[in-house]
Design a protein around this nucleic acid. Structure first.
Lengths: 244, 244
DNA sequence: CGCCTCGGTGTACACCTGTGCACCGAATGG
DNA sequence: CCATTCGGTGCACAGGTGTACACCGAGGCG
């Protein structure tokens, strides 16, 4: 196995371990050592990949960001089915939450819990999400000759609802997911209707959660964060520790 | 100063310190020692008030719960002004968020971040909130002869929106709060309108909801944490530490 | 008054933390 | 094939952590 492959593999282990552990206790409460241990390397080995926990945190945020962006893409691709657009989008969302639960827990939980930098990064990400949804809604409204004045408000409200209920999915046993998804759809439609953006032929034929008919291949790797530095060779001076 | 007063005072200092510190880093990342130090007592003194951090956590949740309940009460008391009911309620909410920002940060941030017990306690609290709002909406709808089928959905959606935007207030500079509040009002009205619960003051002359001001069958009390033990005299054996 | 109660203190301990340092050994490239 | 690169290791250290223990001194009560 080439050296780069090996390094990348370990890096992923670190990221995944951090994700998994942060699901239980929150990222801020994790220690470098326990992440290293969970990844099967020594604590000092950690520094071959990240300068410190904060840097790991940023990478996690980045990962969330990409996941979200792909979510949007996926949702859009289902828009062809103009009928039941809302339902399809939400199905995509729920599907994604299932596939990457830890990422969503991070996104939703650390929005207020983490450091300032962490928070603003996540907020920015969510704002971007709102913007994209808003764009879509506006385009759709124009097509149908509907009012567009409340589009941004509706988008913001919808994201709030979807993320909040999405968070709830993480706590619920599997068999209750479908019910929650349906509630979600109905609530989103409430908002759309209130904003004069109602589009669906109020007609429910199939439960939402089961929208995994044409499963395409897993999401592309999509790496965006700068690959590990040439050779960090541990640096940084001692000082008051925030998390220690 | 009587001994009880003194003890209560220290207890409050501990609670407030925990609240304040958890605003920056999340409760899960706090250490017993730093809370004790911030409260001006030694680490071992902590045990005179709480058995461990988990117990402190429960007390905090309890505090949130009471705050929330008071919020509802306060909002209801403004319902007399039938005109602008939504606006008044949201004003009450925002006001409260300002007055107890740390509590809300806890409520919103730890909903996913903390331990399982922590999470479910907070979720239950929010559910209770939804239930109360739902009741109110239903009563109002019946008075006005409006449909009540989507009342619960609307309540859930509204709480999601209000809490999400409320969380945002915590991050924003003061001068942008008003704008956010207005957005909040408009988004909530979107939901109400979508659910057929629109209560425009334009054609409503009768004072809405001014009649009933008393208690009805309310959810059971949530106070679960016992007052300080007679004399804990530190116990609990050593073992694998979750936070430390 | 004398005794008891009990918040709060200070010390001590084992363990965990982040990180500097010297080192190893396999993949890499000339 | 030999020299270099560089993930990963083990050790060491200072400092933080939870908590057991013995103690103090002021409030409270007979």
């Amino acid at each position: 196995m080439t050296r780069l492959e090996q390094k990348e593999r370990t890096r992923r282990k670190l990221i995944d371990a951090a994700l998994e552990l942060s699901a239980e206790r929150g990222f801020a409460a994790l220690s470098l050592r326990e992440i290293a241990k969970a990844s099967g390397i020594t604590a000092t080995g950690f520094y071959r990949h990240f300068r410190d926990m904060d840097e790991l945190g940023l990478v996690l945020v980045d990962e969330v960001s990409m996941t979200l962006r792909q979510l949007v893409r996926e949702a859009r691709s289902r828009f062809n089915a103009a009928d039941g657009r809302t339902k399809a989008s939400i199905a995509a969302f729920m599907d994604y939450v299932h596939r990457k639960p830890h990422l969503f827990r991070l996104l939703l939980g650390e929005r207020l819990g983490g450091s300032t930098a962490f928070r603003s990064a996540l907020h920015a990400e969510i704002d971007r999400f709102v913007a994209e949804l808003s764009e879509d809604l506006e385009a759709q409204a124009k097509e149908l000759g509907q009012p567009t004045d409340d589009v941004l408000l509706a988008a913001e409200a919808i994201v709030a609802i979807v993320f909040t209920l999405g968070a709830e999915v993480l706590e619920l046993p599997r068999h209750r997911h479908a019910g929650l998804a349906e509630r979600l759809v109905r609530e989103v439609k409430l908002v759309l209707k209130g904003a004069g953006l109602d589009s669906s032929p109020a007609h429910t034929s199939a439960p939402v959660g089961a929208a995994r008919g044409d499963e395409r291949a897993a999401p592309p790797p999509a790496t965006a964060v700068a690959p590990p530095p040439a050779r960090p060779r541990p640096g940084k001076k001692p000082g008051p520790r925030a998390r220690g």
